[in-house]
Design a protein around this nucleic acid. Structure first.
Lengths: 186, 186
DNA sequence: CACTTCATATGACGTTGTCAACTAAGCTGC
DNA sequence: GCAGCTTAGTTGACAACGTCATATGAAGTG
C-alpha cells in the first residue's frame, strides 16, 4: 500500500471505530483515545485526519443522513404511492429504533458543513419526490415539511420513551398510517 | 435564616445557576464548578444537594416539563377547541425557540425518576384533555400521541435548522394549522 | 458549655480534548 | 541508491472536568 492509501485506510478505521463506539455505548463512549485505540493508532492520530472531535462526529452524522436517504430511496418497491410514503416515514422510526444514538446525532446540531447540508438535502429531495406522487407537485413542499417533521417527532418520542407500552392505545405503525392518511384531506 | 433554610436557598441557587448556564451556553457550559461558583459556593457543594450531575440535570428537565405543562394548561383563553389545540402545539415550538437547550434536555433521556415521569404525565394529561374536546373521548389518545409527536417533531426540525428560510414555502404556524386540521378527518 | 450534626471547603485522582515537539517511514529528484 | 523533504503517527504535557475522601467550622441540642 502506498502512503496515501494507508492514510485513507486509517481514516476509514477511525470513522468505523467511532461509529461502533457510538452504537455500542452512546455519545459518552466516543472518546478520541478509544477511537484511536480501536483503529490501531494512538490517541493523537485522529488529529491528522480530523480537525476536531466535532468534525469526526459530523462525519458520522453525514453517514447517517446518507444511510437514511438510501433507505428512503429504496421504497420504490412498494406498490402504491401511499405505501411508499408510509415506508419512508417508517424508515425514520426504524433507524431510530435500530441505532438510537446514531439517529440522535443526526439532529443534534444544525448541519454545520456543506457536506452535511448536502446529505440532508438528498434525503429531503427523496422524500419530496415520494410526497409529490401523493399530493401533487404544488402542495408537495408543505406536506413534505409536515410529514418529515412528524416522522422525526414520532421517532423522537419513541426514543425518549414517551410512546411506550400502549399508553396511547395505538401502535407506532398505526400512527404512521393516520399521518399518511391526513394527506388525503387538503 | 435557620440552617435548613439556607441549605434550601443554596439548592435553589444551584438549580437557578445551572438553568442559566444551560440557557446561555448550552449543555457544554453546565459545569458543576461553574454552577457552584455562580451559586456562591465551592465546586464540591452541589454534591450535598444532588447525588450526581445527572440528577441536577434531571431536575432542570422536570422544571422544563412543568413549565411546558403550565403553558399548555393556560390555553383555556382561546375561543374554540381547535384554537386551543393550535395554541398548545405552538407552546412546544415556542419553548424550543426561546430556550432550545432546555427543550432539548427534556427529551434527551427517558424520564429517569418518578418525579420526571409525573411532570411529563401532567403535560400529557393536559394535552389529552384539549384533544378530547376536538375529536371526542374515544379517539383522543391516538390523536394525542400523533399531535404531541408531530409538535415535538416540528420543534425539533426547527431547532436543528431543517425548517429554515422558507425552504418549504410554508411557515411553522401554517404547519401547525395543517396538523390540527388533520383531526377533522378520521 | 460540651457535644453532635451537617453544609461547605479543599486536596486529590483519573479521564478527557487538545496541542507542540519529536520520530520515522515513504516519496522525490538526482 | 542516496540526500532531503513530506507527512502520518507517537509521546509528553496541560487545563478542565466529574467525583470522592477528608477536613473544617458553624448551627443546633442537651
Amino acid at each position: 500500500m502506498t502512503r496515501t492509501e494507508t492514510a485513507a485506510a486509517t481514516r476509514r478505521a477511525l470513522v468505523r471505530a467511532a461509529s461502533d463506539l457510538l452504537d455500542e455505548g452512546g455519545p459518552g463512549a466516543v472518546t478520541l483515545r478509544e477511537v484511536g485505540s480501536r483503529a490501531g493508532v494512538s490517541r493523537g492520530a485522529p488529529y491528522g485526519h480530523f480537525e476536531n472531535k466535532d468534525h469526526l462526529l459530523t462525519e458520522l452524522a453525514i453517514n447517517a443522513w446518507n444511510s437514511l436517504a438510501d433507505e428512503v430511496e429504496q421504497t420504490r418497491t412498494a406498490p402504491t404511492p401511499q405505501a411508499r410514503l408510509e415506508q419512508a416515514v417508517l424508515a425514520f422510526i426504524g433507524m431510530a429504533r435500530r441505532q438510537p444514538h446514531r439517529y440522535a446525532l443526526m439532529f443534534s446540531t444544525p448541519a454545520s458543513t456543506p457536506a452535511a447540508a448536502e446529505a440532508a438535502d438528498r434525503l429531503e429531495r427523496n422524500f419530496l419526490a415520494l410526497i409529490a406522487d401523493v399530493v401533487g407537485e404544488p402542495d408537495a413542499p408543505r406536506w413534505c415539511a409536515l410529514l418529515m417533521s412528524s416522522a422525526h417527532g414520532i421517532a423522537g418520542m419513541e426514543l425518549s420513551g414517551h410512546l411506550a407500552k400502549d399508553k396511547w392505545q395505538v401502535s407506532v405503525e398505526q400512527l404512521v398510517r393516520m399521518l399518511v392518511n391526513a394527506t388525503r384531506h387538503p
